[in-house]
Design a protein around this nucleic acid. Structure first.
Length: 986
RNA sequence: GCCCAGGUGGCGGAAUUGGUAGACGCAGCAGACUCAAAAUCUGCCGUUCGUAAGAAUGUGCUGGUUCGAUUCCAGUCCUGGGCACCA
């Protein structure tokens, strides 16, 4: 019997479905294990070979855990809201729900093809009203909650109202220090008493409460494109203009919803210690959270008579600066404010106003990313001076885009001697630099070490960072000019989009106050719209719908990460109409034991879902506060693009001007790689000219012209599926497009056309996508699965190359031949020899250890080694082959199931249990030791593992090769590591 | 610019705690089987010198630590991912 993989795979896929072998019960005697994939956004392009990499890894692990006796939850669903479907709707008028449905069907078909063990009865889609009902419900819980810093917990807003009624907000000040009560009894410290609270009207109360809610509405800057009338993602902006149309983009302040994730910053940081993520991942998250300890220092603006002073100056305006190095305060040479800083308008002098305004409008046109990536230094002096809190010296105040409004206080004290960027800035603008490090400072670069001794620093002279920080904080505190401050780089998460295809907010506006819809009104379904374009004034498409705006419903929708922040909970209890997830069920499944997905979600999605989990935990809705116990990041599969090189023929006319010929029937000519590489070589060009002339002469009678080859050939993406390795299938290329029909190739000497290559993102437009369906059709799902794993470590990014897939396919055929010979099953029940058992047990050990550490590529090679060795031993014994099939099941489930049944088993191999390896088959008595002289390998000697070092030394010194190198001398010493190696030092 | 990761034969990669660099596979070369092809099997395969034995050299680059470094440290170059409205 042949290994007819497609029949086998279809047969078992159908059988597994009809026998519901992947259905997972919510109650079981077995221990539970939850394996989750980051669910995909169902794009119109369908699945490419990059998608399944993580799914195959998780599927292997899920099946492995099942064989190990666990009740394994392994679900799949779709992150179905998002911009691409909306963009498609704008361009083609197709409702996003329709295109999404269609895309999902394609994805599903492609996924099924690969033979995953997903329990599809638990599928979720974020765009399904039955799902987003609960996204809206959780949003309402966040809206109705606040973060109690005293208890360190998310609490119902009613507890806050109770506190206000009893004691005002003295114990619980506004979370954002900048908040100022917009009220007649405004107090500079933003505090109010219980009496104040009771006297406030409804609107004031609600405005105050909004400042505390976890989900709150505020104002924020967005990338606004006037021409498109819409807000753009940074992604949609290229070189400061919109990607579509190239229109200018500006910063615009819009009403926005936010999640108060900053309140969770410390817990998000602490929680990292309790989860098994890679160090890199943890580092990325903590850098994003960006906790720093420093000081907030106030610099009063100097009432310098040389500059016109506005009235506010007299009140004593101060600039609050955040710094992590308060110890370097005597080195402050200037202050820098973010151009958007509120004070800029107030302090700018008449003389400087013009250049300041110009600079501000320049900055306004730049994206945050551009500002951060900028290498050249820019900035403008405001004309104002601040007073040094200790010396009263005058400090010039500048603005520059390198200071961001959203970080810290939006203002810094610049210490060129102690900060690289400040140093460059001072250098660029010729601002004198104060030396606070004495001889250590060489005048050309800043010193950032915290161990240096401060000099020229008043009362801090002679101290280092640790000592000086304590002293200066005390002094600042005495003066009321500064205080210790913990700062986070992370900002509150913007939670609204001016888009259509997202969850509507269950919020009604009355008199400028946001009220929650009653939970009985959920889901608040997305209404149908006529067009998907934005409404005027930066509002989303929902603002175009009278029925919507008449009800005063919120017109923003939620962002993509709303639905994905909690989907892992819905899989546990996907059909529950009374709760997002039953508490007993979330108690059973608990945390996701293994979460598999790309690093591109390192900070966004992973932080948001961690925050949601903490909030739900605080509110008593789930019993754990970290969603993902262990994280595996799969690398990105890149495309490996192929190019053909089109020759640009130029007709040189009599005046010497170049012109493309009127090529009525001129075929396109393509140069093979070699010619392109040597294109600049004069001789090569000569001979190419000859060849091309011949081609043209033969085909174009009326062509009577000089040709020039001066221009470089143009690389053109060619479909990678028309290329074998780097060799172009010229016939297939000609047939692929009508414009290529008459293509002429100038090949290598051997007649082959060799393409150029480049590693790029996998995308349709680059013709470098490879569709898994084709590979599955040609080689089978098992081969495809194993090949994806065989490519390399799952965590590593790598370009796709189909070339090696044959090798894996051959392996499966070779495995098949251990069972079958000429249509006869040849498996015997003879006892296995020790040698055969050694091969088996070595493999069991390797597969178990490597699967546990996600080293799937080495598992595939271990299977190959095993089958090679069994083939050499001509071993077709059931005692060896049956356990081997179980080992193989997670990797190649179809062939394993088929052969398992051929051996006479009647239940699915997934119900078998993973074999155990036994030490006794693996122990060795001798080892072939590598023997080095001075660290260089010279020979190997087989030595009994039991004997001691003196005996080993004796054997080694007696060895002829060692003697030769010793040349009669005695060795200095001999290093012997038992079971590893011997090194003789001369 | 900032944060994170990676760089090993012609190619994908292996070497789990510092201990035989190149497992396994692809491609290539030589051979067997075959009328032939496919399939399958056997041998060779980092580079240089050498018939061979063997020697030298070799894990992006420059240094360092060590009896011994792909592995640890410092610096540097290149590539990929992320940087808050792509998902």
């Amino acid at each position: 019997m042949e290994y007819s993989f497609r029949d086998i795979e279809r047969k078992w896929q159908q059988q597994w479905t009809s026998e519901k072998v992947y259905r997972v019960p919510n109650l079981s005697d077995k221990p539970k294990y939850y394996v989750l994939d980051m669910f995909p956004y169902p794009s119109g392009a369908g699945l490419h070979v990059g998608h399944p990499l993580g799914y195959i890894a998780s599927d292997i692990f899920a099946r492995y855990k099942r064989l190990k006796g666990f009740n394994v939850l392994h679900p799949m669903g779709y992150d179905a809201f998002g911009l691409p479907a909306e963009q498609y709707a704008i361009e083609h008028g197709v409702h996003p729900a329709v295109s999404t449905e269609k895309n999902i069907a394609t994805f599903r078909k492609q996924l099924d093809n690969i033979g995953f063990s997903f329990d599809w009865s638990r599928e979720v889609r974020t765009s399904d009203p039955a799902y987003y009902k609960w996204t809206q419900w959780i949003f309402l819980q966040l809206f109705k909650s606040w973060y109690n810093r005293k208890s360190g917990k998310t609490e119902h807003i009613d507890t806050l109202i109770n506190l206000f009624e009893k004691e005002g907000n003295a114990e619980h000040p506004f979370p954002n220090a900048q908040t100022v009560l917009n009220n007649s009894n405004n107090k500079s410290n933003n505090n109010f008493t219980a009496e104040d609270w009771k006297s406030f009207d409804e609107k004031t109360k609600q405005t105050i409460l909004m400042e505390y809610r976890i989900a709150y509405c505020g104002f924020g800057e967005v990338n606004w494109c006037e021409a498109l009338g819409t807000v753009l993602a940074n992604d949609e902006i290229v070189n400061g203009v919109s990607e579509r149309g190239g229109f200018p983009v500006e910063k615009k302040r819009l009403r926005q919803w936010y999640l108060r994730i900053t309140e969770y910053a410390d817990r998000l940081l602490q929680g990292l210690q309790t989860v098994d993520f890679s160090d890199a991942m943890k580092e990325m998250q903590s850098n994003w959270i960006g906790k720093s300890v420093g000081a907030e220092i106030e610099f009063r603006i100097a009432p310098n008579p040389a500059f016109p002073i506005t009235k506010t100056f007299e009140k004593g305006v101060a600039v609050k600066c955040y710094t992590t190095r308060p110890d370097t305060i005597f080195g402050v040479d200037f202050l820098v404010l973010a151009p958007e800083h509120d004070l800029v308008n107030q302090i700018t002098t008449v003389e400087q106003k013009r250049s300041v305004d110009e600079y501000i409008s320049f900055v306004k046109s730049r994206s945050e990313r551009e500002r951060m990536a900028e290498k050249s230094i820019s900035g403008v002096f405001t004309g104002a001076y601040a007073l040094h809190p200790f010396t009263n010296g005058l400090i010039p105040v500048w603005i520059s885009e390198y200071v961001l409004a959203g970080y810290g206080t939006g203002a810094i004290m610049a210490v060129p001697g102690g900060d690289e960027r400040d140093h460059k800035f001072a250098h660029h603008f010729g601002i004198p630099i104060t030396n606070i490090f004495g001889d250590a400072y060489n005048g050309t670069e800043a010193l950032t070490s915290k161990t240096l001794i401060l000099e020229n620093s008043g009362f801090l002279t002679g101290m280092n960072y640790d000592g000086a920080t304590e002293v200066v904080l005390k002094k600042l505190d005495e003066k009321g000019a500064g205080r210790r401050k913990v700062n986070f780089k992370m900002r509150d998460a913007a939670f609204s989009r001016q888009r259509y295809w997202g969850e509507p907010f269950p919020i009604v506006w009355k008199d400028g106050v946001a009220y929650p819809l009653d939970e009985s009104e959920l889901p608040l379904k997305l209404p149908d719209v006529e067009t998907y374009g934005p409404a005027p004034n930066g509002e989303g498409p929902l603002a175009n719908i009278p029925e919507w705006t008449n009800r005063q419903l919120e017109t923003n929708t939620m962002p993509g990460y709303a639905g994905s922040s909690w989907y892992f909970l819905r899989y546990m209890d996907p059909h529950n109409n009374n709760a997002f997830c039953d508490k007993n069920i979330s108690a059973y499944w608990n945390q996701v034991d293994l979460y598999v997905g790309g690093t591109e979600h390192a900070v966004g999605h992973l932080l948001y879902s961690r925050m949601w989990t903490k909030a739900l935990y605080d509110l008593g809705l789930i019993p754990f506060d970290e969603p993902f116990k262990r994280l595996l990041n799969q690398g990105m599969i890149q495309g490996s693009s192929r190019f053909v090189y089109w020759v640009q023929l130029l007709h040189v006319d009599m005046l010497g001007d170049e012109e493309t010929p009127k090529q009525v029937n001129l075929p396109p000519i393509y140069l093979s790689k070699r010619w392109v590489d040597e294109f600049s070589d004069h001789q090569t060009k000569q001979s190419l000219n000859q060849t091309i002339k011949q081609i043209i002469d033969g085909r174009n009678e009326d062509l009577n012209m000089e040709i020039s080859l001066e221009k470089q050939p143009v690389p053109i993406h060619v479909d990678v599926n028309l290329v074998d390795g780097v060799e172009l299938n010229m016939e297939a290329f000609k047939n692929s497009k009508s414009e290529y029909k008459n293509a002429v190739f100038i090949t290598e000497e051997n007649g082959k056309y060799i393409c150029g290559t480049e590693v790029e993102k996998m995308s349709k437009s680059k013709y470098n996508t490879v569709n898994p369906d084709l590979l599955v059709e040609k080689y089978g799902a098992d081969t495809f699965r194993m090949y994806e794993m065989f490519l390399g470590p799952v965590e590593m990014s790598k370009p796709w190359d189909t070339k090696g897939i044959e090798g894996v396919h051959r392996f499966l055929k070779k495995l098949w031949r251990l069972f079958y010979h000429e249509n006869q099953i040849i498996v015997s029940s003879e006892r296995a020899t020790n040698q055969e058992l050694k091969v088996l047990h070595k493999t069991i050990k390797k597969i178990e250890e490597d699967t546990e550490r996600f080293s799937f590529n080495t598992c595939v090679s271990a299977f190959m080694v095993c089958v090679n060795e069994l083939t050499d031993l001509k071993c077709s014994k059931r005692e060896v082959l049956e356990p081997l099939l179980i080992l193989l099941t997670p990797y190649a489930p179809h062939i394993a199931e088929e052969l398992w049944h051929q051996l006479g088993n009647t239940t699915t191999i997934l119900d078998a249990s993973f074999p155990k390896w036994e030490e006794r088959y693996l122990t060795e008595s001798t080892k072939e030791y590598p023997v080095s002289i001075n660290g260089k390998l010279r020979t190997t000697i087989v030595i009994n593992l039991a004997i001691s070092q003196p005996e080993v030394e004796e054997i080694v010194l007696a060895n002829a090769v060692v003697q030769k190198w010793l040349d009669g001398k005695l060795p200095k010493k001999i290093i012997f590591v038992k079971g590893k190696m011997v090194n003789v030092v001369l």
